[in-house]
Amino acid sequence: MFPAYTALAYLTLAHPEAQLYFGPGLGQGIWRIWPSYGASVFNEFLDVFKGLAKKHGVYIVPGTMLIPTGKGVANTTYLISPEGTIHGTQQQTHLNRDERGSGFARGDDLQVFATPMGNLAFVICEDAWYPEVMRILTLKGAQIIIAPIAVPKPYSKWHQVRGMWQNIQQNQVFGIESCLTGFLGGVEFDGRSTIYATCEMTPGDTGVLSQAKAAHMEDVFMADLDFFELAKTIRRFDIFSRFNIPLYKRWFPHVYGENPAQ
């Protein structure tokens, strides 16, 4: 899998004259170039990954692309099957202030995709810091959470821990976080890509199965996801078994509307 904004990187390399930078004009910029060449460049981008998936017989998550929608541009990811077809897509559902200021629009649904490897689902960028997202996905049966991420410098280990790491722990699933590094659209990104499991399943109890060597450099790494071990961990203590559903029913979802905590 690849990190967030990969298609934007492809687009800016192919067409530097588009002058796409993170900030107030980004969404409008994508809209502007979309009819002339934006859509076709994006399709080229997808075709590259479809071809690679088919050639190597693997699933690929090619990162994300900003796609024009009714209200802005949606940060969208794709799951490409070993047959080279699009098996599923997901839009980012939570936006931070910078993203809203850049003309992003959010999606309003979350999907889980059945594959022979297990049930996959996506959290994109800011979604990783809203625990509702992974809770909904895991309640829908997700077993592997895939997170294309891009966080501006400076890198903070603890910011990463309060995102994917802790959400993997509180939902007892596997997680694959792929982080963007380097310059894109006028912003420098850093991040340490990581493959997660519950603490009980990982060396040194860290919750980390495998990790990039550093936050500022390119790396490719892998890990085995052992579903038998995961099931054993859950059987020892299933966090879901102790939900206080009457409490949640009393307050969700209206408590969000009553006091939106802005």
Binding site: H94, R97, D108, P253
Partner: peptide
Amino acid sequence: PLNFNVKLY
């Protein structure tokens, strides 16, 4: 500010 997606919830 936290920016919830109430429609989703």
